[in-house]
Write a protein that binds this DNA or RNA. Structure first.
Lengths: 106, 106
DNA sequence: AAACTTGGTAAGCGAATACTTACCGTTCGT
DNA sequence: ACGAACGGTAAGTATTCGCTTACCAAGTTT
């Protein structure tokens, strides 16, 4: 299908993972801490964090018995790069089409 | 859950929708045209386009019996805005954490 | 107007996946 | 060293969701 491999998009497709992602953007958090704020169980959070980690959207470090997660700029940069890559094409195509045929039919 | 409503992320979470998205970035295309290039049926493409349209990632206009789709800068801008919003926070949190506790355990 | 082209929708099916409970390993405190 | 805190993994279930076939509506052509 010649589609780009953007694991981050698949990862952030899920609302619960977005919620985790957005909380980690605010500040690093431990697993149980995240679970306490979310309407899902702690194992569910663990599983989501695994996906986010594979997408390089988060990193983790152990602090005592706890495991603290935080955002990883790498995956985030990849996501931004992906969108930026299509941004110019989208604008160019948009303008060309509008001038060619202004009447829309939404 | 206080999660941001970013329909675009949910929409682009699917690989087939990404394939459609990426082809429309190249140039506007009709539904059948997309279906011919993809390994899924035309109704499947229609359903995906519906999702992309609701996420304001594409617009459509009718040309004769055909329906031509193209990227919509609005949804794309929203996506970029979403990621940019977390970009600074991620960087700040990342640097602070690294300086605070440099030893990682990947 | 009849036939063809194009595409959206409905219904149904199978696969993916998000969630739960149960269990186990690791680390800290007393 | 024992118990508690913390978190990853396994197994199982239920819902979501992407896909197909069948059908129908709208537009074009001759």
């Amino acid at each position: 299908m010649n589609t780009y491999r953007v694991a981050g998009l698949t990862a952030l497709g899920d609302p619960t993972r977005r919620a985790i992602f957005e909380r980690l953007a605010e500040r690093p958090r431990a697993v149980g801490e995240l679970a306490a704020e979310l309407p899902v169980s702690r194992p569910a959070v663990s599983q989501h964090l695994k996906v986010l980690k594979q997408a390089r959207l988060v990193t983790d470090r152990s602090v005592g018995t706890r495991r603290v997660y935080q955002l990883d700029p790498d995956g985030l940069a990849e996501l931004r790069g992906y969108l930026d890559h299509f941004w110019d094409q989208a604008l160019a195509g948009f303008k060309a089409a509008v001038e060619h045929d202004p009447k829309e039919s939404k």
